[in-house]
Write a protein that binds this DNA or RNA. Structure first.
Length: 421
RNA sequence: GGCCCGAUCGUCUAAUGGUUAGGACGUCGGCUUUUCAAGCCGAAAACCGGGGUUCGACUCCCCGUCGGGCUACCA
């Protein structure tokens, strides 16, 4: 055990689905804790009872579980510490640091002097007291407010590193003042740059897949999402882009977190996810896709599609024809199953019908023979077959697809295509 | 409005006073080729502007511009 163990926390307020920005904050806290032998606490900031529904809390837990981000303590309800918060407020009042005004309790901020926030990412940030009004720490009904609660909770939990979004930076001097009024030293702060949408505005639902759940439903996998998110606001060197989780835990440092806001780029996530999918053992990918689609027996089709998909969701549209019959793409049929196409298709049918072994190698030999005897380029023959069995112009390799379909099914589909007007 | 933070290819980033400003996604071109992808090769593409400091600035300082955040009896 290190002499002083790092303790950090992820403290979301349950306002709905966990956004990508929140997920990244959780990830950075997690990487730091796991990489340093420290621990991470999950605390739900639910002092605003109106917004803090059980459903919203579940959204957060569900998202973290899917991301495979675990924590050593929690989920802790901030509201549960209410008595402790009230006691701190009383203490502040008793010591003359706080006073009541119009029912609410406010912290007295001196007119002179300054509070410096030592930020691990931005350096020292100085706030002049003259610019900070006395601020409310408890409502008129006595219930504690965020700035008070967060400072107390981090203090009590022994949090050494407060890593959160930059939107909290301006409130940090208030929390530091509370801590100091109580006679304590503030923790180390690190304020992460915010995430923006492609339009430069703060990331929101309007920007497409903005929540972890949406990412999951779009067919991305946790490892790829973690890798991508890690790079959104952090960089290791000038060459490495793909990191295992173990590498991330080992290499991640707050010092290398960038200062400026980043734009979430789904195209890059897509590419990275595809990379992960392609390098996965086919059995593993099959399991993921079967659970994603709710279908079984997908193995052979997954093997054929693995190199072509970049999300789990890409699989079904590409492979459905194996199971549910050819889809109906009018354009493809008129283009490739015209009179000439049918003549070639018929020739292919004859060659295939003669095959005893309906494996891809035999199929390839037979079909290439057809091309030769007809003196046609391969795709002149293959495309009509493709359209006949899949219904579209896009499919996995034609020989493998025929093999997977089997002789009977393949010939039936070809026959049907031939008979269509 | 006030306060705070930020600014390198379209996007994510590397560079920590001396580089032809590097990599990745995307884009474009080529190869491969049975379609589509993938893969491989190649190209275009950036230091916000102005002043300083320095022999020398993407790197340091100041001003401006732009962007963002905070300024609640929300978190």
């Amino acid at each position: 055990m290190p002499e002083s163990t790092l303790i950090d926390r992820f403290a979301p307020s349950p306002t709905g689905l966990l956004h990508i920005g929140g997920a990244r904050t959780a990830l950075y806290n997690w990487l730091l804790a796991r990489g340093s032998g420290g621990k991470m606490i999950l605390r739900i900031e639910d002092t605003d009872r109106e917004r803090s529904t059980k459903e919203n809390v579940d959204f957060i837990l569900e998202a973290l579980e899917w991301l495979e981000i675990d924590y050593d303590e929690g989920p802790i309800s901030q509201a549960a510490a209410d008595p402790r918060h009230r006691a701190a407020i009383e203490e502040l009042k008793a010591s003359g640091h706080a006073y009541e005004f119009e029912g609410a309790t406010r912290l007295k901020v001196p007119d002179e002097g300054e509070t410096i926030v030592h930020d691990a990412i931005r350096g020292d940030v100085t706030f002049q007291h003259e610019n900070i009004d006395d601020f409310t720490i408890a409502r008129s009904d006595g219930s504690p407010l965020y700035n008070l609660a967060v400072a107390i909770d981090d203090l009590d939990a022994g949090v050494t590193h407060v890593i959160r979004g930059e939107d909290h930076l301006s409130n940090t001097p208030r929390q530091v003042m509370i801590l100091k009024a109580l006679g304590h030293e503030p923790p180390i702060y690190a304020h992460l740059p915010l995430l923006h949408g492609p339009d430069g505005k703060k990331l929101s639902k309007r920007h497409g897949a903005a929540s972890v759940q949406e990412l999951r439903d779009a067919g991305y996998i946790p490892a790829a999402v973690r890798n991508y998110l890690a790079l959104l606001g952090w960089g290791y060197d000038d060459k490495q882009t793909i990191f295992t989780t173990e590498e991330l835990q080992k290499l991640f440092t707050i010092e290398r977190v960038s200062k400026s806001a980043a734009v979430f780029d789904e195209k890059k996530l897509q590419w990275m996810n595809g990379l992960y999918l392609r390098e996965m053992p086919v059995e593993e990918l099959t399991a993921l896709i079967e659970s994603f689609t709710g279908r079984t027996g997908l193995g052979p089709a997954v093997a054929l599609c693995q190199e072509k998909i970049s999300t789990l969701a890409d699989f079904w549209p590409m492979a459905a024809f194996f199971f549910d019959g050819p889809i109906d793409d009018e354009k493809a049929r008129t283009k490739f199953l015209d009179e000439e196409g049918k003549i070639r298709l018929a020739a292919a049918r004859d060659a295939l019908a003669d095959l005893e072994n309906f494996d891809s190698a035999s199929i390839e030999t037979a079909l290439r023979g057809v091309c030769e005897s007809l003196e046609l380029k391969p795709n002149k023959v293959f495309q009509p077959i493709r359209v006949a069995i899949s219904g579209t112009t896009i499919s996995p390799g034609i020989f493998e697809s025929l093999e997977l379909l089997g002789k009977e099914d393949s010939l039936n589909r070809i026959e049907q295509a031939l008979n269509k007007p």
